[in-house]
Nucleic acid binder design. Structure first.
Length: 564
RNA sequence: GCCCCUGUAGUUCAAUGGAUAGAACUGCGGACUUCUAAGCCGUCGAUGUAGGUUCGAUUCCUGCCAGGGGCACCA
């Protein structure tokens, strides 16, 4: 409808002798002011040195001549807004359409035949999976699904730091531990990392030991260290895999720093003199020569060790060579922002055709309401513990319901994950998220569980309807159009907007509005009522709502439970 | 010092240059007791600051203030 209407407005303008570049069509904040609204009259009034209201009236009569299907009336309001009111048939048709499209409802073809690679999560073996990884995962998974809904083939990638000082610190802790390591968990390895990290900062002797281990990890010259390394890498990666399963992520690629280092190093060395330069014994990139806002970074140290920058070069080139994506998206915290600009500039000089295809999405950092997180103080909130706490709260809430233990476990998992994911995805990506367990993991109001709960209420109506053998029909339609209908059809537009801005929170905001509209409808209307001729249409409406909520939650990476 | 991000109600967040700046939580006040009350209805309450551009600015530009991040061998 939106595109069609824009075309009609453009041709109306053309008839009036105005060549319109872009036409802005929006949904008025208040549904009373129409279903769509445009400001073109105000925008072009000056150009024609005419009164916006008069121009609006002219445009209105041009549009009325067209007799657009599904349009009930056109009005001029305010300073010169043209408001469009859709016909009841339009809403009924969109409900029908939703039930026809089912799981495909909301998809578009913006990225038809395109391939998009999304890299996210990036936890490091030997270190805990912390809240930041949870954030990146929630955002990256949602972006992946939004891109998928926009018609692209999505390739999910994870990039993990399996070499470097953090590994040496953990191994130092493991070696230093009096207990045998063989049956220990990823959690325990995380604790050893914290001890090693502490040791590194507090005693030059230990620092020296850890540096020594780091070298051995690189060149694999020490049998004992190799054994611990292989064991620890597996244990932590397996633990991450469990978390991905809970979160609902399945990666197509796992890239490791150990593999990217030699690839990147080769590329960097081949481009010395062209892109990179030698300076004080190190290989550096003077990005400020290309963009004054960027800065110089070291890519290979004076000791010849490739840094993170170099590995990133290797990773970027590897991604393009393996999959040749039309768009390559990376999701990380904002702290990587400036760094990434420099690296991407360097890559662009080597491969100009990659430049416009690389996108870096940054999100804020998650911080604790009660002071800073620090691995040394031991007040790190790991992703696992957070997930577990959230699930425990849900389990407690459903404990007295008549459900089997398996059902309760599943609900705890699905709703617990939802509470967390929603609290991350509800806000735009720019700002930090202050994590306060009591407040941030909310189960009422603006929250994931609220959306799920609303879907569950709809689902139980549908289940009952099915049992009683009543079905959806469009024969008798109530006179009044509900807000629910006015919100439902907008879903597809919201998905498009989420993609063009790469902002999942638009979905979250929309779903909350949708749930609220449904709950109002639910509270005021008895839906199952055999003596009510409108009952069949209302059932269709409930079904359309349930489908839309389910598809929307999917885009947030959240499952829709049947009961809760 | 330079660069990037962010400042909206008591709190956590929305608002594609537009109409009376929306929600949620909290506070206060209600309804029904029916298909799940994790729900519904009402109410109190906000654009950091000073300019500029515009018919119109929370949104764009500039200065200032505040918070976070980054700036040569960590990742």
């Amino acid at each position: 409808m939106k595109e069609k209407l824009i075309q009609h407005i453009k041709s109306a303008l053309k008839n009036l002798g105005i060549e319109a570049g872009s036409v802005i069509l929006e949904h008025p904040a208040d549904l009373k002011m129409g279903d769509y609204s445009t400001n073109v009259a105000m925008a072009y009034a000056k150009q024609l040195s005419t009164n916006p209201k008069e121009l609006a009236e002219k445009i209105k009569s041009e549009i009325e001549k067209e007799n657009i299907k599904g349009m009930q009336k056109v009005e001029v309001a305010g300073a010169g807004f043209i408001n469009f009111y859709l016909h009841h048939d339009f809403f009924v048709d969109s409900v029908k359409d939703i039930l026809k499209q089912k799981d495909n409802w909301g998809k578009n073809e913006i990225l038809k035949d395109k391939k998009v690679m999304v890299e996210y999560t990036q936890p490091n073996p030997f270190k805990p999976f912390h809240i930041g990884h949870l954030m990146s995962n929630a955002i990256g998974e949602s972006i992946s699904r939004i891109v998928e809904f926009s018609g692209a083939k999505t390739v999910r990638a994870n990039y993990q730091g399996d070499v470097g000082p953090h590994v040496a610190k953990a191994i130092w802790g493991i070696l230093d531990s009096v207990e045998p390591y063989e049956n220990k968990s990823a959690l325990w390895i995380g604790e050893q990392y914290a001890r090693g990290s502490d040791a590194y900062d507090n005693d030059p002797k230990w620092k020296e030991e850890i540096n020594e281990i780091n070298k051995k990890v690189y060149d694999r010259s020490d049998e004992k260290i190799n054994k611990i390394y292989d064991w620890g890498r597996k244990v932590t990666l397996d633990a991450f895999e469990e978390i991905y399963k809970t979160l609902g992520t399945k990666f197509d690629y796992y890239f490791f720093e150990s593999e990217m280092a030699p690839i990147g190093e080769k590329i960097v060395r081949e481009n010395i003199g062209k892109v990179f330069e030698e300076s004080e014994g190190a290989i550096v990139f003077h990005a400020e020569n290309y963009d004054p806002k960027l800065h110089t970074r070291v890519f290979i140290t004076s000791l010849g060790i490739p840094l993170y920058e170099t590995k990133e070069v290797g990773l970027t080139v590897t991604k393009f060579e393996k999959e040749n994506p039309d768009i390559s998206i990376i999701t990380t915290a904002i702290e990587q922002g400036e760094y990434m600009k420099v690296v991407q500039k360097a890559v662009s000089l080597i491969h100009p055709d990659y430049e416009s295809r690389m996108k870096h999405i940054t999100h804020g950092m998650m911080r604790l309401a009660s002071g800073k997180m620090s691995s040394r103080k031991g007040n790190v909130v790991t992703g696992e513990s957070l997930l577990k706490d959230s699930m425990d709260v849900v389990y407690e809430k459903v404990s007295d319901r008549e459900l089997s233990i398996e059902e309760k476990d599943e609900i705890a998992k699905v709703v617990g994950v939802s509470a967390l994911k929603y609290s991350i995805l509800r806000s735009s990506l720019g700002s930090d998220i202050v994590y306060d367990f009591e407040k941030s993991i909310s189960f009422e109001g603006d929250s994931g569980p609220y959306l799920q709960y609303t879907a569950v209420r709809a689902n139980s109506i549908l289940k009952k309807v099915e049992a009683e053998g009543i079905c959806a029909a469009y024969k008798d339609i109530p006179n009044e159009v509900t807000n629910l209908e006015k919100v439902l059809y907008q879903f597809g537009e919201v998905v498009e907007r989420s993609y063009t801005q790469l902002e999942p929170h638009h979905i979250a905001t929309y779903l909350t509005e949708l749930a609220s509209a449904f709950n109002t409808f639910y509270g005021n209307t008895q839906i199952i009522n055999k003596s009510d001729p409108y009952a069949n249409y209302r059932i269709a409406l409930v079904e359309a709502f349930h489908q839309t909520m389910k598809n929307g939650l999917y885009l947030l990476g959240i499952k829709t439970p049947g009961k809760m």
